[in-house]
Amino acid sequence: MYGMVNKAVENLVTIKFGADKWRAVKKKAGVTIEAFISNDAYDDSITYSLVGAASEVLGLTPSEILFAFGEFWVLHTARLDYGDLLSSAGRDLPEFLDYLPSFHIRVALIFPHLKPPRFEVSDRGPDRLTMHYFSHRPGLSDFVKGLFSGLGKMYETPLTVTQTKSKDQGAEHDEFLLQWGAVAAA
């Protein structure tokens, strides 16, 4: 996993709950790394341990933690690390969503060893699309939902996210129906 993901967990816990809680989370997770490097590769188990420990220390379910983490990733971490690039990825939410698959393909080119996830868009309509999410990492669908939710907030566009297929429940990949604008506001 990207170091920036672990760093995002650190920032989320530190900013929302305080530095003491982050130290408690690290201790509980058995993580002794002083500081994460954004573009370095870390073992996935570190991220899972941190999320599990954060869930215990903060008294939130893993699902709540992952969702909050997804939103935080878009609204804080990605803005901090990729702010201009992120805002240039689309003039509005639909354009951003259209561009999301290409963005991750380019990331995969830059960091082939990090095995980033892959997105595909289908059933594009004026106020909806189906986003397909492919990842070899299990249990991150709540994180992805949080990402989409964060994007809606970033573009100040009402958005509903409905998971229509789940890899955790036997599907080949995760699938989300994204609806925005008036449909979502309703």
Partner: peptide, 21 residues
């Protein structure tokens, strides 16, 4: 400009992502 303004084959976007990284 947005990234979508560039043709997909245009390496300008890759350059920008690289620079950001």
């Amino acid at each position: 400009l947005t990234l979508a303004d560039f043709a997909l084959h245009d390496s300008t976007v890759d350059l920008l992502q690289h620079v950001q990284t």
